[in-house]
Amino acid sequence: MSIVHHLDEDILLDHAAGTLAEGFSLAVATHLAVCPECRERYAMIEGAGGELLDTIEPAAGGDAGWQAVKARISNAPLPTAKPARRGASGGSAPVLPEPLRSYVGSDVDAIRWKPMPGAAQFIIPIRDGRAVARLLRIPAGKPVPEHTHRGMEMTLVLSGAFADEDGTFTRGDIEIADGSLTHQPVATNDADCICLAVTEAPLKFKSWIVRLFQPMLGI
């Protein structure tokens, strides 16, 4: 199945410029890993960054800078080769593409899921703390409680599929939601849906029962 839900230029620009919170950049970079179409547009956007660097008014700094760098590179040992990546153990490709797999620390089969009502989650460690990233496993045919958002939410499907007001999302598809969208994602019947969900603020659930338990779930 090919990807139908892509990233817009404004998000790609934020990723290219380095403005985006780390958690959102994780979702963007993982989508780029599986989406040649967005990668091509992204290459153009980074190219625009290179072009701006090329045409910036240069700031001269005298010769000391060169002398300092020259001394450093002459004394530096040759860079060591990169350590081998945590690859797939079997012959098949991992479910979690890089950079997500390194952030999680393993592929999906070794994740220590934390149960939550109607689903399971794994909180992904993110250093900058500006957005919360989690893997969600929604059982086949089951919904995530209906909610809207207090800020941006990015959801990237890794296996299975879900459907909501904006369409059906399969592996590689990414949904960007904000306060203007109220939705109730439902996993399709054929398999559990595993997705990466990144939020910058807690969700706003419609049901008061869910709201009651929300602090315990941390969602």
Binding site: T30, A33, R39, G49, V95, R127
Partner: peptide
């Protein structure tokens, strides 16, 4: 060079890494 400079800025100001895809990853399309 722009991407290297940008990553240096992120590293310095946010003390964080910039997630990036890896073309050698078996899951890369």
């Amino acid at each position: 060079i722009f991407t290297i400079a940008r990553n240096q800025r992120i590293d310095h100001w946010r003390k964080t890494n910039r997630p990036d895809f890896d073309p050698n990853d078996p899951a890369f399309v």
